[in-house]
Design a protein around this nucleic acid. Sequence first.
DNA 1: ATACCCTTTGCACAACACGCAACCAATCTG
DNA 2: CAGATTGGTTGCGTGTTGTGCAAAGGGTAT
Lengths: 266, 266
Amino acid sequence: MPKKVAQVPFIQSLDRGLTILQAVATSKQPVTLGELSELLGVDRSSAFRLAQTLRRRGFLSTPAGRKDYILGSSMWTLSRQYDWSNMLVRVAHQELKALAQALNETAHLAIREGKNALFIDSVHARHVIVVAGQTGELVPLYSTAHGKALLADMEEKELRSIFGSEPLERFTKTTIKTIPALVKECVGIRERGYALDEAEYMDGMRCVAAPIRLNDGTVVGSIGVSAPASRFLKEHYPSHSKSVVQCARKIGALLSVAEEITEQTA
Amino acid sequence: MPKKVAQVPFIQSLDRGLTILQAVATSKQPVTLGELSELLGVDRSSAFRLAQTLRRRGFLSTPAGRKDYILGSSMWTLSRQYDWSNMLVRVAHQELKALAQALNETAHLAIREGKNALFIDSVHARHVIVVAGQTGELVPLYSTAHGKALLADMEEKELRSIFGSEPLERFTKTTIKTIPALVKECVGIRERGYALDEAEYMDGMRCVAAPIRLNDGTVVGSIGVSAPASRFLKEHYPSHSKSVVQCARKIGALLSVAEEITEQTA
DNA sequence: ATACCCTTTGCACAACACGCAACCAATCTG
DNA sequence: CAGATTGGTTGCGTGTTGTGCAAAGGGTAT
């Protein structure tokens, strides 16, 4: 594979400004001018002027009286106003398709929406019998592999604040019934890296899903495959889960790292 | 007041890049190169190189096969990783203080946190008797002025998905008891622009709060004042609510517009 | 096929961002 | 309290770098 790096000249100062933004955003502490100048390998004065420009536009800000930089309100406003719903879909769709083809089963992409999991994309395999779970469908978080993957990092307190005190509705014989059981399940998911659904929501359906994580570990979505238990046998778990986990990891990397300039050949 | 604009030279290309980011973020549609070049008043080629630089860093992206630009994953990742909890506090604190001083009552700043309102900042007036509601406290959304302000734009469906089917807990005689009543209340808040709390959570306490909205209307927080009913009389409602609404509007503007470079004099 | 978009690349000029150095402000040290 | 040290800010000349122009690709409609 030839390293076909498109040689479009960088706009140096813009590039540096973006580096500053990323540095400030990923730092827990306010960032000082010195750190910025060192990071960029430029003179203090240059870093200063870059930072000032960002500040003027509201992308950076300085905490009351202090001189060091934190992210400003523009960054916040922009990300709030923008409709991110198709972001995950965009970067994940290729992988989703690959996953569905590799396993020849329906693959889904889901995010958390309140106390439900929302399927935001799906690729169907060539089977005639297609599983439920169309794009746009809402399913409970506690009774599906996707949902449980999305909950993976939660502790008991968070789970309780999501589901409240009301008892969990039962859909099938295997549906998780209590919060403590769910907590335990989450621990398992964290360890294994993926979640299973043994007909916990719909009878006769199996599903494997894995949380999609950013670099810093936060779960932003889940990916997985589902199929009727008659076709998706227990002995498929090892291989399927491995594929799903790898796929999730890849998507996480795509989200965290700036995307390469990818040339699509016809 | 002398227009003391600090004359720190802009980094032109960085500034232009940021303009592009904002334009793309606020546009509902993907943005074409032509639009960008016209917006900036520069040649197409320049706009192209700026956009490419943004693209390389993942701040912009091009939808599969298309040539026009949408926001990229970096923007998303950054805003996700960053801890925004003190963002509102930072830009709102001045106004909060002004509000508390003007009305000589305790002023609060709150955001939504699940099914609760979270007080993230407060300024106490000089009264000896200080109302409850310290920074960090969680209060129900449906039974406080702050909470109801945060819910202002919700429809019945959303409200139900937040509160579930369990009955609303009653705290006082005036606590709102049902979802339909809450829906009606929200309509009123939208019309008036502010929410009232007539001892709905704590006996003998009154509160006025208004939603803080970004330019596009989304509610991101609430600001308000509260005091014992013995001091905060019903006839104060008109003037207090006016102050609160104005304050909320100002904060919303501060959030949406890039902040001016404000020089603090000792 | 031809003509008309729009995006992309090459190139040369000068604008602009850079580093240097000096100037402040604040904290640390003797 | 002086003097030194660190870190932020400003002025200025140089040459790097971003820019406009012009021409070349790619795509779609006529």
